[in-house]
Design a protein around this nucleic acid. Structure first.
Lengths: 188, 188
DNA sequence: GTCTATAGAGTGATAGAC
DNA sequence: GTCTATCACTCTATAGAC
């Protein structure tokens, strides 16, 4: 066959390497090992180097979130179901906190400033999608934005705390409470 | 004068450098510039290198939190005041999210595994101190731990979100709601 | 021949240790 | 300052598909 591998198939392996080591910590040696590709191949697929690799990873993540989280929230005509689905996907995606949020990590030090716009749009869209969904659920406009902010922020915090305590149960407990809070707001 | 500088006086500058660049990103060149000390002086004060510098920073942070946050919560006989004081200190300390939580950052990638025990104890103590304070405030034991977890986790999330959106107001809004939730739980 | 993809030696710069 | 190791990255050489 002609194409032995391609750019797209390297992206998930790159993503896991960046998650585990961070942007700076993920050296070309690490990325090469993670993907099974030589440096030559990596530079062939990503002429822009690490930065282009990270951009490809972020685009892939954004695509996943659009499909599984953002669009369903934005289009929901059954808000409670859409929200429950969001929590299921999020819990699975972050593996109960064992897997970090790459976008969240990039906010925390200067290594990620190049990606600030992408990160900002991701979080802004998540909040506005959830906020819209709550509005469809007849939650007062005074609270939709606040609830959405707290939820998105709370998920990030739950990842940090679950990892700090090395305990998935913490993640699941915090998310379960947030889930209930949103459902209560809708049905109230 | 004989002593121009010393180990302790370098710690705050090291802390800010680690916060800004992360553990891996903070090179000796960065740390040297941040402290105004040559590499030789840094190794004189911290023979263990970067790792010992980070340990000194973490010990310094732990000391501050014990004094300002943990002990007041643990000894509180006026829980509402202790909790309000905690939120005031936290908001100021993290500068409305502009300043990251070093302990939280260390949880997010493999660069910080050496400090896992320190990080775990910090978060565990914060949660148990707050939980105890809520118990003194006559909150049902079924909820103290949950509320404390959510609060500590929520603060971490608020830092991430405020930085992602580049907006302090987000941090302050999330913390204000958490503050109210705890006060409501006590007075309910 | 051209084209894409490969592995990996080699570049200068800079890392942390001392 | 000096050391070696490693960094991101470049480039050469080579492969097989057209």
């Amino acid at each position: 066959m002609r194409v032995l591998t391609n750019r797209a198939s390297a992206v998930p392996a790159l993503a896991e390497a960046f998650r585990e080591h961070g942007f700076e910590g993920a050296s070309l040696a690490v990325l090469s090992k993670a993907t099974g590709l030589g440096k030559g191949s990596l530079y062939n697929f990503f002429p822009g180097g690490k930065e282009e690799m990270m951009e490809a990873v972020l685009a892939d993540i954004d695509h996943w979130f659009c499909e599984k989280i953002f669009l369903p929230l934005e289009r929901a005509n059954d808000p409670a179901t859409a929200i429950s689905s969001m929590f299921e996907y999020v819990t699975a995606y972050f593996r109960s906190g064992r897997r970090v949020c790459l976008l969240g990590c990039l906010t925390l030090n200067t290594a990620g400033v190049e990606f600030a716009v992408i990160v900002k749009e991701y979080f802004a869209r998540w909040i506005s999608a959830l906020s819209h969904c709550l509005e469809v659920g007849k939650v007062s406009r005074d609270f939709t934005r606040q609830l959405a902010e707290e939820t998105v922020s709370g998920i990030q915090g739950a990842i940090v705390l679950a990892r700090a305590l090395d305990d998935d149960a913490t993640f699941n407990r915090v998310l379960r409470r947030q889930h209930s809070a949103l459902i209560d707001a809708i049905t109230a």
